[in-house]
Design a protein around this nucleic acid. Structure first.
Lengths: 198, 198
DNA sequence: CCTTTTGCTATCTGGCAGATACATCTATCA
DNA sequence: TGATAGATGTATCTGCCAGATAGCAAAAGG
């Protein structure tokens, strides 16, 4: 899965749990895989069409406009295992928050503080979401076999969120330090304007 | 910066530290911003052309083939501040490792273990890279003012890597548990084949 | 009966990564 | 000198993908 067919794997995986319409697929992916995966309609519908064409997925219900449910086929399950077995290539990183902080001197400590505080509250929200998922009972007997694996991803989300919180507090302290250093030089309201090199 | 112009911000930011050629830009972004950002040539060159067209960047040296160095202009610095000030929209998550673990029952505990071990070693490498960056002396006097901000991103990388390590160890233990549970039911070499729902 | 809302399907634009191609400039050995 | 290789440097093309947009149908509600 060299950075391609990722959508197909996610769609097949979701359908391996339960047959769904394209719309429900999107809801399910957003709600259940939301903390580590996302898909857009622009990806899901072409993927479903392609999967149907290749016999990996079967369309139930009206094939004309209206709700039609898709179910995974035996060939689809085999294909899913194939896709999951391919090495997990980490996507090239792109963290807009860290980009801003890296060039933070252009913004000044106060604006950076606001950015970090924002990230901090997002991490707290994620931690709360993970706790809510943990509290959900494993009522569906079909999902009990999957649950231990799901909990692995929940745990990953928790570790990441807690790390983000710890980092944010550390960063806030460091930014306060910077701010008071600046304050010794010039009035605190003025934004630092670094020199050019033309 | 609603998920657009991200490349321009990164390019302007890099040029705000030092004038460079497109090639050096790519090297610098890979080496210095590598743990939280990436750019490809296919983005950098069009971005430079567009920035030059808008007068935010200035081409020094031969404008025909060969090395031409780009420097940020005053307007470019202003534009950089503008871009950095826009809210940091987190990109939609896409974690191929967690996708595989979520549907891990299709793979079996052993394959999942291998995936987690791989991620663990990548986290260890990142931790070592961050330690190396910290050891680098702040010899360049022009960069001393930027350094506290850079260290914020290094710290973020360290926290994330350590969290990944802790999670990996926890996950490995959980997967071992799963493996021994399975072993009670069926021979350990057979892959679990979950039921379909056709 | 009309209007709004929600469920659902689909398309289009543009950002972006990765592969590829090619040209120039060293450097090292023949 | 010449040749080969490797680093430097510029550029384009393909295809994945997110997000915006738009068109319907059925239900709800007035």
């Amino acid at each position: 899965m060299a950075r391609t067919d990722q959508t197909q794997a996610a769609v097949l995986g979701a359908l391996s749990v339960l047959p769904m319409t394209g719309y429900a697929l999107r809801q399910e992916i957003r709600d259940t895989l939301g903390h580590f995966w996302s898909e857009s309609f622009g990806q899901i519908y072409p993927a479903l069409a392609e999967l149907e064409r290749r016999g990996l997925v079967e369309r139930r219900g009206g094939d004309r406009t209206g709700s039609s449910t898709f179910a995974i086929t035996a060939a689809g399950t085999a294909r899913l295992r194939e896709l999951l077995a391919e090495p997990a290539q980490p996507a090239p990183p792109r963290n807009p928050l860290l980009l801003r902080l890296f060039f933070g001197r252009q913004l000044g400590p106060d604006a950076c503080r606001a950015l970090v505080l924002d990230a901090r509250s997002r991490a707290e929200e994620q931690l709360a979401r993970m706790a809510a998922v943990r509290r959900e009972p494993a009522d569906d007997p079909a999902s009990t076999a999957d649950r231990p694996y799901w909990l692995l991803t929940v745990s990953a989300g928790e570790h990441a969120a807690r790390a983000q919180l710890a980092w944010a507090d550390e960063a806030l302290a460091a930014l306060d330090e910077l701010r008071s250093d600046d304050g010794a030089d010039r009035p605190p309201s003025s934004r630092p304007t670094p020199e050019e090199h033309p």
